[in-house]
Amino acid sequence: MNELIEFLQTNGNELLLKTWEHIYISYLAVLLGILVAVPLGIALTRVPKIAQWVIGTVSVLQTIPSLAILAFFIPFLGIGTVPAVAALFLYSVLPILRNTYTSVKEVDPNLIEAGKGMGMTTRERIKGIELPLASPVIMSGIRVSSVYLIGWAALASFIGAGGLGDFIFSGLNLYDPAFIIAGAVPVTILALLTDVIFAKIEKTVTPKGIETHEKTV
């Protein structure tokens, strides 16, 4: 216990800085993933002939090791935050894209036709019918993606992007378990907190009457 207190007294400020860097990198990548994957998923429901090809291509990118992706971006984007966010962004896209495409595609066609009968435009149907009904599944994809990215962001330390991975890799280089724990424990806590936060958001955006159905599927 005394060793932990001493460690925090010596490295507390740096730990806070690395935690903020980790949150910034992870959440920025997730935000970019949402801004790209949700509209793309909706658009693909309109062109199902190429949907599976696009999702398949993104799935292949997901299988590439994260370190290889990070290394790939270095010649183009250098080192630091930008290539780290770009790499994490690629990993964020698949769960959000797949869930958006699947959930919007499975909206009851009768409801879509009813919207057309009421004179709703395509944009109005997306905003008023499709997105509200698909939101629980879309949020589930965002939630999964966010939790994964919190863990993967530790690898950003390899290309000088900072984050809690700096503590982990310093501990490995110095053979100092205190540094490893100081990096690994906050990453775990951040992942758990992220899961809880997005679970609450998922519950909030779920229309009444849909939540019970989703839980019974």
Rank of each mutant, 00 (worst) to 15 (best):
E6H: 14
F7M: 05
N11E: 13
E21K: 11
S26W: 05
G33H: 04
I34T: 03
L35N: 01
V36H: 08
A37I: 07
P39I: 11
L40N: 04
L40K: 11
G41L: 07
I42A: 13
I42K: 07
Q52C: 11
W53N: 15
T57S: 15
V58T: 09
S59W: 05
T63L: 12
I64R: 10
P65L: 11
I69C: 12
I69N: 06
L70F: 11
F72H: 04
I74P: 00
I74F: 09
F76Q: 01
L77V: 04
G78K: 09
T81N: 06
V82N: 10
A84L: 10
A87T: 05
Y91S: 06
V93I: 15
I96W: 03
L97F: 06
N99W: 12
T102I: 12
T102C: 03
K105L: 14
P109S: 13
N110S: 15
A114D: 00
K116T: 08
M120T: 04
K127A: 15
G128P: 05
I129E: 05
E130N: 04
E130G: 10
A134T: 00
V137A: 14
I142V: 15
I150Y: 01
G151N: 03
L155M: 11
A156G: 11
S157C: 07
S157M: 05
S157D: 08
G162C: 06
I168T: 02
S170R: 14
L174Y: 04
L174K: 10
P177N: 06
I180L: 12
G183T: 01
G183Y: 01
G183N: 01
V187R: 06
V187T: 12
I189M: 09
I189S: 05
D195L: 09
D195R: 11
I197C: 12
T204P: 08
V205H: 02
V205M: 04
K208R: 13
I210C: 05
E214S: 13
